[in-house]
């Protein structure tokens, strides 16, 4: 029964948040911390910070970490399943449906308008992200080179992640070494 409860809590949250994972956080906090008092506020903040540093989908990561904290594997399993299910079912319904309508002339017209708008919605957060990533004249070559590699020669974004993470590791090691030499 407890697991069913875990499932429905996150199912409800998943069902009513439009606009991505971050929109879910206040709802999860209200339900898990304030209403049910399953975990303390500080623990919740720790779990959130951890979820952000782990790869994957932020909202699902939070569900997994809270579930695991409460009831180990099955807790994580049912909370994650609850988060995923609404999206999965709704998208599946749309996918089955949309295929029959997408070639209708009015639908085509609507999507012809939407496509460049979506590209702009993807372009816009680049500049916000550049600010939080503290891009300056010494490291601006990294985003430029990686964007050009992906765009012009079809380089996989996954390699960019691997290389930049590894580069960060090497640079950090080099920095720590020179600092300890100075001391």
């Amino acid at each position: 029964m407890l697991y069913l409860n875990y499932f429905t809590i996150f199912f409800r949250i998943g069902l009513f948040t439009i606009g991505g994972g971050y929109a879910m956080v206040p709802l999860i906090e209200a339900e898990i911390v304030d209403k049910r008092k399953w975990i303390k506020k500080e623990e919740f903040l720790d779990l959130m910070a951890l979820s952000q540093t782990v790869p994957g989908i932020f909202a699902v990561n939070i569900a997994i970490f809270i579930g695991y904290k409460l009831r180990k594997f099955w807790g994580a399993f049912f909370m994650a399943l609850g988060t995923i299910m609404p999206s999965f079912l709704i998208i599946l319904a749309i996918a089955l449906f949309f295929r029959q309508f997408q070639h209708l002339e009015p639908v085509e017209r609507v999507f012809k308008g939407i496509r460049p708008g979506v590209v702009a919605l993807i372009a816009a957060p680049t500049f916000k992200m550049a600010k939080t990533a503290r891009i300056n004249r010494y490291n601006i070559w990294i985003p430029i080179v990686s964007a050009l590699l992906i765009w012009l020669i079809g380089f996989s974004p996954i390699y960019v992640i691997i290389l930049s993470g590894f580069g960060g590791y090497l640079y950090g090691r080099y920095k720590r070494k020179t600092e300890s030499h100075r001391k």
């Binding site: 990686s146 964007a147 992906i150």
Partner: peptide, 24 residues
């Protein structure tokens, strides 16, 4: 180590976002 990996990842992610828009 995790902190320095993330220092490297952030500029890479900016490149990823830019490339997604360019490719499309």
């Amino acid at each position: 180590v995790v902190a320095s990996v993330f220092d490297g990842l952030r500029p890479g992610v900016v490149g990823l976002l830019a490339s997604a828009a360019l490719v499309l």
